[in-house]
Simulated assay, not measured.
Amino acid sequence: MTDDPVLVERHDDGVAVVTLNRPQAMNALSIALRAQLYRVMTALDGDDDVRCVVLTGAGERAFTAGLDLKELGSRPGALGAANAEGADENPVKAIETCRKPVIGAINGVAITGGFEVALACDILIASSNARFADTHARVGVMPGWGLSQKLSRMIGPSRAKELSLSGNFLDAATAERWGLVNRVVEPGELLSVARKLAADIASADAAFIAGYKRLIDDGYALPFGEGMALEHRRSSQANRQVTPESVEARRAAVQARGRAQ
C-alpha cells in the first residue's frame, strides 16, 4: 500500500472515495495527513467530474483516532498549528464547505478530532464495530473544529454532555438510535452501501444538489422562521427558471426510478 497519508479513488459514476491512510497509527491526524486532506477535499470540490464523496479510514480498527498525540507530545507547536488552521487551510472546514455531498463511512473508532472529522460529513453510515468518543476533557484540550456545537444539535445537549464530559465511548447501535448516524451495516458491507448511496446522489443534477445542500446547511444555521424565509427567497428565484417542458421531460425518469425502488 502507498505511503500517502490520504488516498483518492475516482470512479466513472461521479463518486470519489477518500481514505485516511495511516492504519498503523489508527489513521491519526498528523500534520501531514491534515494538510493532505485539506488539499484533497479542496481539489474534489473544484472537480466537475466528482459529484459525491465517500470519506473513510484504512483498515477496520479506526476511521481516525483524532490528532496524533505522539506527534503533539514530541513536536513543539503542533497543537498550536492544529488550532491555527483557519477556513483557508482547515481540513474539517474543507469537508464542511465542499459543495459535493460527503458521506462518512465510519469503519472503526472516531475519537475526539476524528469525531469532529466525522461530524463535518453530510451523512454518516457506520459499521457495526464503529465507536465514537470525545476525550477532549480527558486530554485537557478544548475542541476547535465544532464538536461542542454540532454534537448537541444532533443528539441534544444532555446526551452531548454525557459523551463529552465523561469521555466514554458510544457504540454504533446507540449512535443510530440517538440519530448520530443514518444506519449501521456489517463491516464488509460498509463501503458498498456508502458507494451505492453516493452513486444515487451523483446521478442527480450536480448544480441542483449543490444548491439544495447549501440551502439545508444555511437554513439549519438560522432560527426556524428565518430558515423558512430563506427557503422562500431561494425557491422563488430558482423555480422561476423551471419550465413545464423541463418538468415533463424528467417526469417519466422520476416515475420509473420510483417504481424500481
Score class of each variant (00 low, 15 high):
I201F: 01
V109K: 01
L180P: 02
T243E: 13
A126T: 00
L67K: 06
R10V: 10
D217T: 08
A43I: 13
S30Y: 08
A58P: 04
V109W: 03
A16G: 08
I216L: 15
A118D: 05
A253M: 12
F63W: 03
V8H: 10
L67S: 08
L191Q: 05
V185Q: 06
K93T: 11
T97H: 08
V53H: 01
G80K: 10
D48G: 12
A202S: 09
L29Q: 03
E189T: 08
G80E: 11
H232W: 11
A43C: 12
D171P: 04
A198K: 03
A94G: 06
W178M: 11
H232M: 09
R51P: 09
E186M: 11
Y212F: 14
R61F: 07
L170Q: 05
E85V: 00
I31V: 09
R234E: 14
L72G: 03
H232N: 12
S164I: 11
T56G: 07
R257I: 10
A202E: 02
F169H: 09
V117D: 02
R233W: 04
G144T: 01
G227A: 14
A207P: 04
I155M: 01
N90G: 13
K196F: 14
A252E: 14
V141D: 15
R259M: 15
N182V: 06
N21H: 13
W178Q: 11
T97L: 06
G104Q: 07
Q149A: 09
L33C: 11
K213P: 03
L215Y: 06
A82P: 03
A120Q: 00
S192A: 08
F63T: 00
L79Q: 15
N168F: 08
D171L: 05
L190T: 03
T135H: 11
P101D: 01
A35D: 15
G225R: 09
R214G: 07
S166M: 10
I155F: 00
V109I: 15
V18T: 04
R34P: 06
F224Q: 07
L20M: 09
E231N: 08
Q241T: 14
S164M: 15
T2F: 12
V242E: 07
A198D: 05
I103V: 05
V185S: 04
V181G: 02
A137T: 14
K150S: 04
M228S: 12
A204V: 05
G225F: 06
E162N: 10
A260W: 14
E116T: 00
L20C: 02
A221I: 11
P143H: 02
S164A: 14
